[in-house]
Simulated assay, not measured.
Amino acid sequence: MSDNPFYEIHDPRFRDLVVSSASLEELYSGCRWAEGPVWFDDAGHLLFSDIPNQRILRWVEGGGVSVFRSPSNFANGHTRDREGRLVSCEHGERRVTRTEIDGTITVLADSYNGKRLNSPNDVVVRSDGSVWFSDPSYGILSDYEGYKADEEQETRNVWRLDPTTGSLAIMAHDCLQPNGLAFSPDERRLYVADSGASHAPEAPRHILVYDVSEDGRALSNPQVFATIDKGIPDGMRVDMSRNLWSSAADGVHCFSPEGVLLGKILVPQVVANLTFGGPRRNRLFITATKSLYSIYTATTGAHRP
Rank of each mutant, 00 (worst) to 15 (best):
R283P: 13
G44K: 03
A75G: 10
D162G: 04
K148P: 09
G44Q: 01
L108W: 03
N76D: 00
D250Q: 08
D150V: 00
H303C: 15
L86D: 10
M236S: 13
N282D: 14
V212C: 00
R126K: 08
S247N: 00
S142M: 01
H10I: 12
D229L: 15
A218D: 04
S66H: 06
R116G: 09
M236F: 07
T297F: 12
K230S: 15
R94C: 09
M236P: 05
F225H: 04
T289M: 12
S142K: 01
V158H: 12
G103R: 09
R80P: 10
V158S: 15
D42G: 15
S29D: 00
E35Q: 00
W132I: 06
G263P: 02
G196V: 08
S213D: 01
A75E: 07
C89E: 00
F225I: 06
G44H: 04
E25C: 11
P222E: 05
T106E: 12
S21I: 12
L86A: 10
L190E: 12
S246N: 10
L161Y: 01
T104Q: 15
D250P: 06
N4D: 14
V267Y: 07
Y210Q: 07
L141G: 13
R94E: 11
M236C: 11
R95K: 12
L262N: 05
E90K: 12
E187H: 08
K115P: 05
P279C: 01
G166A: 02
H199W: 09
H91D: 07
G92E: 03
L190N: 08
S137L: 15
D239M: 04
L57M: 02
G196H: 05
H253I: 08
I207W: 03
G277T: 04
F285H: 11
S127V: 02
R280D: 14
G30I: 08
A218S: 08
W245Q: 14
G263D: 07
N179W: 00
Y7V: 07
F133Y: 09
S247M: 04
S220I: 01
S2T: 15
D16Y: 11
G259M: 05
N76W: 02
H303Q: 15
D239W: 08
R13D: 13
P37N: 01
I105V: 10
P185Y: 03
S66M: 06
Q177M: 04
W132L: 03
T155I: 13
G231S: 06
H78S: 10
G84C: 03
F74Y: 13
S213L: 02
A288E: 02
P37Y: 03
V107D: 11
D135L: 00
S246H: 07
G36F: 01
V267E: 10
S49R: 09
E90G: 13
P268Y: 08
R217C: 13
Y293M: 08
L244P: 07
L176D: 11
A288T: 03
A218L: 02
S256H: 07
Y191S: 02
N4A: 13
I101D: 12
C254A: 11
R280V: 09
E151N: 11
F255Q: 09
H45Q: 01
E100P: 13
K148A: 15
K148S: 12
N53Y: 00
G92W: 09
A288H: 06
D122W: 06
D194H: 04
R13K: 14
R85H: 14
K290Y: 05
F285Q: 10
D234Y: 09
P204N: 00
